[in-house]
Computed example of a mutant assay.
Amino acid sequence: MNTPTTESLTLQEQGQQLSVLGAFANSEQFQMATQAAEMLASSSMVPDAYKRNPGSCFIAINTALRLRMDPLMVMQNLYVVHGTPSWSGKFAIALIQTCGKFNGIKFEERRDGERLVGMRLVATKKETGEEVRGVWVTEEVADKEGWLKKNGSKWVSIPELMYRYRAAAFFARTECPEVLNGLSVEGEAEDIAGKSQPDIKLPLFKSREISGGDVVDAEKVADSPRQLGDAEVPGKGDVEVPPPHIRLMEALSCTEDQLNKAIAKASGDKVKGWHELNDKQKEKLAANPDKLQPFIG
Rank of each mutant, 00 (worst) to 15 (best):
2 N>Y: 07
7 E>R: 12
8 S>G: 00
9 L>V: 04
9 L>G: 00
23 A>D: 01
29 Q>C: 11
32 M>L: 12
33 A>P: 01
42 S>M: 14
45 M>R: 05
45 M>P: 00
46 V>P: 09
50 Y>N: 04
54 P>I: 08
63 T>H: 09
64 A>E: 01
70 D>I: 00
73 M>F: 06
74 V>G: 00
78 L>I: 03
81 V>T: 12
83 G>I: 06
88 S>A: 12
89 G>K: 00
101 K>D: 07
104 G>W: 02
112 D>Y: 08
113 G>R: 13
114 E>S: 13
118 G>W: 00
119 M>H: 05
126 K>T: 08
126 K>R: 14
127 E>C: 00
129 G>V: 05
129 G>Q: 02
136 W>A: 07
140 E>H: 11
140 E>P: 00
141 V>M: 13
143 D>T: 14
150 K>Q: 12
151 N>S: 09
158 I>P: 01
159 P>F: 12
164 R>W: 02
166 R>F: 05
170 F>Q: 06
171 F>D: 02
174 T>G: 02
177 P>A: 03
181 N>I: 01
193 A>N: 05
210 I>P: 00
211 S>T: 09
225 P>H: 04
232 E>T: 05
235 G>L: 01
236 K>V: 04
241 V>A: 03
246 I>E: 14
247 R>L: 15
248 L>P: 11
249 M>S: 04
261 K>G: 02
263 I>M: 07
264 A>I: 02
265 K>S: 09
266 A>T: 03
268 G>H: 07
276 E>A: 15
278 N>H: 12
283 E>P: 06
283 E>W: 11
289 P>C: 09
